[in-house]
Design a protein around this nucleic acid. Structure first.
Lengths: 151, 151
DNA sequence: CGAATATAGTTAGCTTAGCTAAGGAAGAGC
DNA sequence: GCTCTTCCTTAGCTAAGCTAACTATATTCG
């Protein structure tokens, strides 16, 4: 069995933490997906849509980078959202290669509706936690996001 | 920030927290998936495998429930793991309908190897955090898991 | 006992998300 | 102008998730 990894021997505590975060993320997402499905949009699309809505018009490349996804994946996500009337594609005036993605009113509306719906279930659970625990979770989310953006 | 949570009218703060957890979970998983792919196993399989390894032999139904997944999904995950020699299916002696899933040595080995690999990347990032912050993340993982198991 | 029902898993068929490889089309450099 | 790069799309694959429908075994009950 693996005893001492030659490297800097990553704290056993970090191994367990990685496992728990992994498991927690999987289970949280499976749970949220069910709610988002009922809202009529998938988790991946909702995540991309929120970037479009909140970060204003963005190019396909920026959006793929923001979502840490390969370009073809974003092409498909945007195609689906466009078909559903949630976003709009516009050509760039100067550079014929780039495509700008704008949120349409329906997309903005749906994003907010989905937020409401997610919170309807999550908030009940979150309300069971002490305020300090919610604060803790918010901080944790921040750390996790920062981890993801490092690499 | 948090005043008195009156149940109804879900605190705007809870809405934002739900969003951030959602986004953080998506991005963390996308990140971890890449590492797990290199280890030769997907996130979903790894999660199921860890149940089999740590919670001893389990039936298909127990496994699907533990992973909060529909039975056919687990059938497919187990089929893949069996094909890869990670787990073994055994008939129940008394009840001809149930199937027990046992971990095979290769599966146990692979699980631990994947843990090592995940931590190799995550631990570097986690090491950049203060010990208190790691403690915070561990607590957060606990809360998130508890949320997931409530419904 | 035997028929009806309930339970455990599987098969079939669909949607979605992710990837790589390859290509088109527009810009940039020499 | 020709090459090279950049931005995005198309094509084609794997995998995870679902529901509906099926098989096979247990169980219940008339």
């Amino acid at each position: 069995m693996p005893r001492n990894p030659p490297r800097q021997d990553p704290l056993p505590e970090a191994v367990e933490l990685a496992d728990r975060l992994h498991s927690a993320a999987i289970h949280l997402l499976r749970r949220l997906r069910k709610q988002d499905d009922r809202a009529g949009i998938s988790a991946a699309r909702l995540s991309a849509l929120s970037v479009v809505v909140f970060a204003g018009p963005v190019t396909m490349g920026q959006l793929a980078a923001a979502e840490q996804v390969a370009p073809p994946t974003m092409t498909r996500l945007v195609a689906a959202m466009e078909r559903d009337g949630l976003v709009e594609r516009r050509a760039d005036a100067d550079d014929g290669r780039v495509v700008w993605i704008h949120a349409r009113p329906k997309g903005t509306r749906l994003l907010h509706a989905a937020r409401e719906r997610r919170v309807a279930t999550l908030a009940t659970d979150l309300a069971a936690l002490a305020p300090a625990e919610r604060t803790l979770l918010a901080a944790a989310a921040g750390f996790i996001e920062r981890l993801g953006s490092e690499s």
